[in-house]
Write a protein that binds this DNA or RNA. Sequence first.
DNA 1: GACCAATAGTAGGAAGTCCTACTATCTTGT
DNA 2: ACAAGATAGTAGGACTTCCTACTATTGGTC
Lengths: 201, 201
Amino acid sequence: MTALAAASLAGSAVAETPAAQTTAAAKSAVPLTETPALPFDPVAEAARQWRARGWIEAVDGMAAVTSLMRAHQIVLSAVDVVLRPMGLTFARFEVLTLLSFTRTGALPLSKLGARLQVHPTSVTNAVDRLAADGLVRRERHPSDRRAVLARITGEGRVLAARATQALNAEVFSGPAGLDSAQCRELVAAIAALRRGAGDFS
Amino acid sequence: MTALAAASLAGSAVAETPAAQTTAAAKSAVPLTETPALPFDPVAEAARQWRARGWIEAVDGMAAVTSLMRAHQIVLSAVDVVLRPMGLTFARFEVLTLLSFTRTGALPLSKLGARLQVHPTSVTNAVDRLAADGLVRRERHPSDRRAVLARITGEGRVLAARATQALNAEVFSGPAGLDSAQCRELVAAIAALRRGAGDFS
DNA sequence: GACCAATAGTAGGAAGTCCTACTATCTTGT
DNA sequence: ACAAGATAGTAGGACTTCCTACTATTGGTC
């Protein structure tokens, strides 16, 4: 779910807007679910509803949260389109890439979770699947018998390189038509949020 | 998974940074998974790695996508903390709120999906659970026998009002410490992305 | 040196998302 | 009028995320 769009325009005709579709098609190959493009911005509509009810101090926050939900959905879809043919998901791609960046090619699961900021069970899950595909190997930690190391395999390195190259070309060079400046604005705005949430320093 | 943080700092000490924690605590009650706050920004680290490898044109896009993933995780957690005690999730909250905004209190599932921009199966799922809790009722569409209407119940309206009030107070009034201006910047940056993806006009 | 708290990881389960069919029903064009 | 195609919704499956235990270790404290 993504946008608290108001239903007051329920009876309005839905325009086709083929222009928007072509814009999207120019970037990512095939929209996973081709939502037919609403004739209005659902987030702006939701904000209007909030304002109409006098929830003024919550309008901007609501719009920010709702926008974030939809943005996540959009970029994740775009990424998945590229990675699925390689048998990867973004979660597993991140693990693989992070491992490929390390000097030794291995990290304890706990470190993986800390760097990627996900729950321990998510790491276990991702590593399990990567291991099942032969892209990483589980190893004992040399000095801590509680810990498990995930080590990237040669096959894993090859796939990581291919995946990175594909993502760089097809998604990261202008996600959904954003230029570099817009990307940087987005990153800056989100960095404030992440820092506020206690993510880093 | 969220941040392609580099592992080259694997040996560095992890500072506690209680300041960041207090900031977060001031907003949302309890972080679901209290990640211990990295001593550096993992997104910035990933960007550094990208740059070091010469993937210049993809740096900003990668950072944007990675930031978005983590931001989604953060706000969803904050929202869930508030909604869980009421037996709601954000997905179901959105359905409920959208229905409460309609004149008649009912919408076909297809319209719900279009407004919230989610897959038809996600709508079915959400409405099923809401119906199981007595918050909406499924009805036949009067003129289209293929369609199903979801109608909000009295109980649903009460809960929607409570949930909205709680979210407005505890999350939407400055999510993760963002002020209104920062929220608006975020919304604007994401609006460009959503429009680029063909979401609306 | 023993005990107790913190840390690493896993198991099982609830939810959400999407995808690929597949059925039923409208709508449109000939 | 009727066949072809579009639309509405559901079933079943894959995947992710998180949560709540629960089991091993490790490490600090008295």
